[in-house]
Amino acid sequence: MKHIISILIENEAGALSRVAGLFSARGYNIESLTVAATEDATMSRMTIVTSGSDEVIEQIIKQLNKLVDVVKVIDLNDGKFIERELMLVKVKATAQYREEMKRMCDIFRGRIIDVADGSFTIELTGSGSKLDAFIESLDNTAILETVRTGASGIGRGDRILKV
């Protein structure tokens, strides 16, 4: 099953490679990984999307906790949470596609953030599956380029990950 794991980690040189190295060394898969500093610049927040049996996820959490730089780890799937990902898609916007692209963008509540002669760049946020759905609903030959940030996640309501 897919799990979203949130990590607070010391913002030290090499911290990211410790996490990435752990996943590759122990054969855990990473679907996506995002990281940036938090409001406290000495600490980074990382979101990892991974999948595995309950036993594997339990081991992943334990092994992450064992890293000396890791301050806190939670599995967002243990409770209610919100998942968001940002995607930028450059699509063909020649006469033949222009209206269709505008329409699709509206349906998915995206925004056109760059307009050129033959192309649009669309910005879209949402869960990973929403972004997948958008891509699937476009004519494949009209997609020029896509870039996705990978998911970020946060607990709902009182679920707070902080030191």
Binding site: G21, A25, V68
Partner: peptide, 14 residues
């Protein structure tokens, strides 16, 4: 050295 030993140390520092 920090890179080479990362998978076989409890922790390392540069």
């Amino acid at each position: 050295m920090v890179g080479i030993t990362r998978p076989c140390v409890k922790h390392n520092f540069l």
